[in-house]
Amino acid sequence: MNDISTWDVVRNLLDGVLWTLGLSLTAFVLGGLTGLALLFARIASTAWLRKLAKAYIEVFQGTPLLMQLFIIFFGSSLIGLELSPWLAAALGLTLFTSAYLGEIWRGCVESVPKGQWEASASLALSHFEQMRYVILPQALKIAIAPTVGFSVQVVKGTAVTSIIGFVELTKTGSMLANATYQPFLVFGLVALGYFALCYPLSVFSRRLERSAHGTRAH
């Protein structure tokens, strides 16, 4: 099978990079929205909402992403719902991402001093208004660095979805490795692809962290 040129390999891998990127973005955006809902549930005054959100987070943080994907992919077909690998992957990664982001953000909200809650409460702001105008603007500043940092985990997490047959970078790589008998070259390039996606995010996150500690911008 030596009729596959290096250029073909690279072109196919670039395609895989795009799918990996698309899946990461989808999971990150949808997971972020769900995570925000989880955050509100996690600090709600209603006890059952708090417990529900906590249970959700513990389930998705306490089991391997691979198992979650298996259960969604095979479980859905068991109940007669044929999810495509893309849909199952997007759903699984979204749930996974939401659990982590919800928990990261809860930590940020809780690091806002209690006095901020009390002062805004004593001014008669409702819980939602306190969040909107006082707590979240302060928590956001703390949250940016760990959120960007976690996005690296999301990108790497997409590799697992190759196992349920979603053709992203890793899956493209294993198909090409089989076809070309050059696994070292192919997976080297695959790794380079992940690095190209993740390294800028890590650097960005570290820089944000430094500036969050260094300055007290308004």
Binding site: A119, A121, S122, L123, A124, Y133, P137
Partner: peptide, 30 residues
Amino acid sequence: RQKVGMVFQQFNLFPHLSAGQNVMLAPEVV
């Protein structure tokens, strides 16, 4: 709470808002 104001030992100003915005917030929002 609209009838009762409170001032705290630790001030508890909102650090992301200017002095004027701190004072304006509750009349505007509440």
